[in-house]
């Protein structure tokens, strides 16, 4: 509503300092706040959403669920390797750890927040390691090794994962997700470094660090949600 009000303003009728001018002392530069990185993060997450939505749409169209002619009739589901569930658990646990870190950072305990953040980061790393194992195991299936969870496609069709569209999509999409997780780990490490250096006596430094932890947690929640949606896609098709 505020947006609509802002966009229907007749700007020529209202000369003056303007409704959105802050009431802070007008002329001092030091009184204002720094940029809020959260807005940048939100815009970035929008881009990431589009990226995964497009890949998922391509997945569904290639599968043949699209009203057009797409889909070659060669689609065989990849099945549900148990590692998939374990990795999902790790990712969710990492999210929880980030929220714990956020709680402590807000409570003004940067050192303990740092410990929780490190735990979250470790869980995130474990997720990536789990994904690597999963990709290797799947590749093994397609190379002919028998394993309980090997997808139906892998038996008797020695074309490798590249020849199987469902597997190729799985590698593509989960790989892209993994890269985003790695990026998140870098941000998490930087935030951890900031927490370690924070002067516990300075309120501004503490609030700033808490905000950084909050953005980390937000990114992590988002990537966990993306993963859940992707899981839904993989498991239901």
């Amino acid at each position: 509503m505020r947006l609509i009000a802002a966009l229907t303003e007749k700007p020529w009728l209202t000369p003056g300092p303007g409704p959105s001018a802050p009431s802070a002392p007008a002329e001092s530069e030091s009184a204002a706040r720094p940029w809020d990185k959260g807005v940048g993060l939100t815009v970035f997450l929008l881009v990431v959403t589009l990226l995964f939505t497009l890949m998922s749409s391509a997945y569904v169209m290639r599968m043949g669920g699209h009203a057009g002619h797409a889909g070659g009739g060669d689609w065989r589901p990849i099945g549900e390797p148990p590692l998939l569930w374990l990795n999902t658990g790790l990712l969710a646990a990492a999210s929880l750890a980030f929220h714990a870190a956020l709680g402590r950072a807000r409570a003004g305990r940067p050192r303990r927040a740092g410990a929780a953040l490190a735990l979250g980061g470790a869980l995130g790393l474990a997720f990536v390691a789990g994904q690597l194992l999963l990709w290797r195991a799947l590749a093994g299936c397609f190379a002919g090794e028998a394993a309980a969870f090997c997808p139906a496609a892998a038996h008797g069709i020695p074309r490798g994962w590249a020849g199987d569209p469902a597997a190729a999509f799985f590698y593509l999409i989960s790989g892209a997700h993994g890269l985003h997780i790695l990026g998140g780990l870098v941000a998490c490490a930087l935030t951890g470094g900031r927490l370690a250096r924070v002067d516990p006596g300075s309120l501004a430094a503490r609030t700033g660090a808490a905000r950084a932890v909050q953005l980390c947690a937000r990114y992590w929640d988002f990537m966990a949600l993306v993963w859940l949606a992707l899981m839904g896609l993989f498991v239901s098709t």
Binding site: A6, L7, K10, P11, G16, P17, D36, F44
Partner: peptide
Amino acid sequence: GLNYVTTVLQARTRGMTLMR
């Protein structure tokens, strides 16, 4: 693009409403 969007949303000076 992230920069352009965030800058327009956040860094407008005093009195610079969207419709100005």
